[in-house]
Nucleic acid binder design. Structure first.
Lengths: 236, 236
DNA sequence: GGTAAATTTTAGACATGACTAACTTTTACC
DNA sequence: GGTAAAAGTTAGTCATGTCTAAAATTTACC
């Protein structure tokens, strides 16, 4: 069931390995077998097996116990995979406002399957929504307002109204889900870059004496927010 | 690696079988092992194997050589799978204007992986685009115009301008790709229902003496179009 | 430089889900 | 109702990709 969007003779499974090797190589560190195993959530022996297959395909160079690095062929394929991944993940997080973790998992599974046409259309859809202006707000913003409104409505319908607060009033150890982010476009983009999007769970770690700054954990990362910033985030 | 969107103890592979059994049962015919095999593109013995697994999970009732039918548990799960499938395929065909065949394949692979939240957001996105009116056209139509325009532009850029015709001028045996469909919303919806969307390949089978009606093949199905209808379809 | 810990590899087991080939049951038709 | 064809099953094989356990190599540190 090979199809032409895939690398010839490489099951989508090994595309995953290639993707991770590429991602790691893009970071500064030496690519270690152990890290690959951890990221893929498999045992090191499975990684060795995968490395041998990738080497056979001339996608990476590697000797037993030696360093791992991608060949130019490998880099070329990684780029293709990576573009698809970025497109799908971007669509899920930026347009559908899906939390990063879920979006990541989903993007990983479907990136192998999508044709260049689908990727292109998703990018065009995004472009279209960004460009569509009405009363100074673009369509993505209006879409997100639409999401909030509908979620609130359906929550009301099933009678489970969940109280909402500003992130700035939470105490250390408290956990909450982001409901909405106020503020202008630039601020919202900044929050988006930090992984703070609607539906994302956050945990407050520490609050400085005067409530500024506030340290929170998002998807395993620690972030420090000014009080003025935390006041823009509505959580539940 | 089970996750809660899946049926417990059922690999996504067997969800495929369940989906097809449900689809067939939704049609009028008795569900036959042979048809399942053909649809899944596997040998009959693999189907037998799958049927045994599905029976173990109490999703279908079935005796060797006997009839196959879904239990209420099976129907419940099928509905969940089917909804996801419909949502994803609808998004791909109606919003991204991907051809049915590609959309079908992609929807089948990703339907197992998406969470209820993603499904919901996709539906809301569709709703949003439908409701957004500007100058009497909704956002989906404007999006599709945007797709055509961009495709034309990029074709021009790489210098391969492809001539365009009305479908009505093609002769029997000629093949073409749909580029655009003119006409009002109702007509376009009718074409959409028949599987005539941008990017879809069609083959002209027969043309009656005065050019009316025109018989074409789309994705293996035969359709008969009035000349007046065929004149609304621009192909290349 | 020696040795313990960490990392990586090898070898072999195992689960999954496809396949082939041979067999059984059902269906269709005379 | 008998028989050939079609449909479906069983048993066993195979490929894939994981795992465990043990061995080999590298690294880190005294």
């Amino acid at each position: 069931m090979t199809n032409f969007y895939h690398i010839r003779d490489l099951s989508s499974n090994f595309e995953d390995y290639l993707k991770i090797i590429g991602d790691l190589e893009a970071g500064k560190d030496q690519v270690r077998s152990k890290v690959i195993a951890k990221t893929m959530k498999v045992k090191p022996s499975s990684v060795t097996n995968a490395l041998q297959v990738l080497r056979e395909q001339k996608l990476i160079t590697y000797e037993p116990y030696g360093p791992i690095s991608m060949t130019s062929k490998g880099k070329r394929f990684w780029l293709i995979i990576h573009q698809k991944y970025k497109t799908v993940k971007g669509f899920l997080t930026e347009i559908l406002e899906i939390d990063h973790e879920t979006a990541d998992k989903l993007a990983c599974t479907i990136e192998h399957k999508i044709s260049p046409q689908v990727t292109e259309r998703i990018l065009l859809l995004k472009q279209f929504l960004k460009d569509e202006n009405l009363c100074g707000t673009n369509a993505i913003d209006r879409l997100h307002d639409f999401f909030s409104k509908r979620t609130e409505e359906s929550e009301k319908e099933i009678g489970k109204e969940i109280p909402r607060f500003l992130l700035s009033v939470l105490k250390p150890g408290e956990k909450a889900t982001i409901h909405k982010i106020d503020g202008d476009k630039a601020i919202r983009q900044k929050f988006l870059d930090m992984g703070l999007i609607r539906g994302q769970e956050v945990v407050v770690e520490r609050v400085a004496p005067l409530g500024d700054p506030i340290e929170i954990t998002v998807r395993g990362y620690s972030l420090s927010l000014r009080k003025s910033e935390a006041e823009l985030v509505i959580v539940k």
